[in-house]
Design a protein around this nucleic acid. Structure first.
Lengths: 389, 389
DNA sequence: GAACTAAGTTTATTGAATAAACTATGACCG
DNA sequence: CGGTCATAGTTTATTCAATAAACTTAGTTC
């Protein structure tokens, strides 16, 4: 339900879909997209592209920018993201604290707050922090995205071991406080989206694997989360991938789980913890048992090959703290994939980009969702009215 | 590229998408769908639904049927598939022979031919057989679907070990002969679609695994093939799933491949062959080594769990000759899945329905593709003109 | 400065869905 | 048995989005 495929009933949904496509083009190349470029990319006429852009400008989503250099005729007016009006609220939920960021549409963080809490005080402190922000920025808030560790359908938290929650209707609660659409997003999905959105041409399936103390996966298609229910998708940490003598005991009580071999804790030892910065991880890795790293890479490669084969994935991206393991680890994984290559082409593996901001990811999913699924121009107009008056 | 997601440019594409949705509803419950039912299911108004149906009737895709029993008001006119006009050509390609079937829209086979050939004569014999049919049924042919073992993007055969082909632009060639849209479909995909189309409510991902002398997988989403490039998707037979001492040598030259443990040949011995009927297989299974069956089930379960976890699959369906292994085998697989269950829900495994006709599968994909992607009402009108004159 | 090219706008038209009023036909019920 | 209600389906006027085609603007090239 997270992706923006509209049911194409009526003309209005066509308009919405085309507005969304136009907006996405500006998002992909802010400052260099033009009306004519949108017309070309979408196949719509120049007149329609102009009309779409006019509406996006009126909705405070896009602004006219500089004149582009001429390509033989009249110089085009470039389009930029309107960063001055709407704000996206991004809430990153972690067990003992939360980060609340207000992000402009161009991705710049306007304001950040940190809220620390204990298990008991969590809901109360979140409520009051969100209420504060909602009143403070009333009228400018567009959507909110909540990133959390655990399974969710976007509305409810099904299960979060880290947060100690089971079946919590968090989106409803926050929507009452904020009066804007709220979308819950699994943290690995958010990471995958932040990464996938960076690509200009993201064709085909891409498998994203987060490796920290835990392991999770997400699949993107053409730069967006793969369609279909994501309720419990990507929970691969405790699928068995090692057997017989190789299988180690896992903290989940079973044996041979992917996490028991390929998690950062498994590879670097119990000293590892998710809050470490890259230098600390690199240092830890330098003194780590090479066999354990190799074993982790092997187990990971097994997993990757199977999933990549089913989906015919174009690329595999490893994200999370494992990025700090650097190229040697990547080479281990890639070598293992290539070694037992299937008849079909090998899938290339790389690390996620370090500066793919996570708040960008969850913000983008939330924005995309709001625009694609629950957004009506009237609603947006209401949201953008106050600053205009 | 096989699925019917339209680029939603214009009103015309909305019309096409809605025509397709209406047609699909009639296909799902022929003889019991009604105009009012289509309106309810699609959310469109009754007037629009009537207009869509009128166009489908004019295009000879649907006909009015009986009056339904009253549900409190006026009796509804049921809609049936118009089996009298259009024909789908289904070509099932195998190494030493091909089956050509002309299938009416309701799935009944109007005519069947068998063509046997050697490697050298194949192309020539196919060409002449197709030319014959094309002239014989000129004007009634709507689309053609070609089912074959090997990787394809719908237009070209990338690689087919069984047919000995590499990068053959088969669709172009056949389209020149037949003058109707031709779609190439991998055989496992066709099987998966035939199975998925049987379900009334096919929500979420479903993993289909064909097990014969080889093993292939296909993923469906909500009753249709999962979107995205399927060029080489589902080629899981030679991914390694057994390691260390367990790993057996595979015919592909490597070790521990899924096929080396879970193919019918691996489980039942070299006596097995894909052409066997169900009784022969059952007989062979009765005298088979139980350890090998158990080992095959175990390797299969490992594979299933990983893929199901990534996609959050709602169901796993096993098709192909393995269906004849019966419930005992299914129980082995299911037990293995449940035994090392991940924290999330176990995925149920079942066999494909025996009577899910394969020609239905490839025919449906081809039809859906033609309607969704390359079909224009004008084109269809041309195709349906001759029988009307 | 004339010819050309590309960007973007204006205006009339087309096509698809809608709303609302209407017809048709059966069930239910006193 | 006739009135009322419910559902199926059609007709007609309207709305809305995209289009085509003519037009304006603003640059390059020769």
């Amino acid at each position: 339900m997270l992706n923006g495929d509209d049911a194409l009933d009526t003309q209005a949904s066509v308009r919405r879909a085309n507005l969304r496509r136009a907006l996405q083009l500006v998002f992909r190349s802010p400052g260099s997209e033009t009306r004519a470029g949108i017309a070309r990319a979408t196949g719509l006429t120049a007149a329609t592209a102009s009309s779409l852009v006019a509406e996006l400008i009126e909705l405070h989503l896009v602004v006219d920018g500089e004149q582009a250099a001429s390509t033989g005729g009249k110089r085009a007016t470039t389009l930029s993201i309107d960063a001055a009006h709407h704000l996206i609220l991004v809430l990153v939920l972690r067990p003992t604290d939360a980060r609340i960021a207000l992000v402009a549409l161009d991705g710049t963080e306007v304001e950040t707050r940190q809220v620390a809490f204990s298990d008991e005080s969590r809901v109360r402190m979140l409520d009051s922090a969100l209420t504060d922000i909602a009143t403070e920025h009333a009228g400018r808030l567009l959507v909110a995205g909540v990133q959390l560790p655990g399974t969710t359908d976007g509305r409810r938290v099904f299960e979060s071991v880290q947060l100690g929650w089971t079946d919590v209707p968090l989106a409803d609660r926050f929507e009452r406080l904020l009066s804007v659409p709220v979308l819950l997003v699994n943290d690995v999905d958010a990471e995958a989206i932040a990464e996938a959105a960076r690509e200009d041409e993201s064709s085909g399936y891409r498998l994203f694997i987060h490796i920290g103390t835990g392991i999770g996966a997400a699949v993107t298609l053409d730069g967006e989360l793969a369609p279909g229910p994501r309720d419990r998708a990507g929970e691969i940490g405790h699928v068995q991938v090692q057997f017989g003598d190789d299988a180690r005991a896992c903290r989940c009580g079973r044996q041979g789980c992917l996490e028991s071999a390929s998690s950062m804790t498994a590879m670097l030892g119990d000293d590892f913890d998710d809050a470490m910065d890259d230098e600390a991880i690199t240092a830890l890795a330098a003194s780590a048992d090479e066999n354990k790293l190799a074993e982790g890479a092997r187990a990971l490669a097994r997993t990757i090959k199977l999933i990549a084969a089913v989906l015919d994935a174009a690329e595999v991206v490893i994200g999370g703290p494992a990025r700090a393991l650097g190229d040697p680890f990547l080479r281990l994984v890639q070598a293992e994939i290539d070694y037992t290559a299937t008849g079909t082409a090998d899938v290339p593996v790389r690390f996620a980009d370090a500066d793919a901001s996570i708040s960008t990811g969850v913000g983008q999913v939330a924005l995309s969702n709001a625009l694609g699924v629950r957004w009506s121009p009237a609603q947006l107009r209401a949201a953008s009215a106050p600053p205009r008056s």
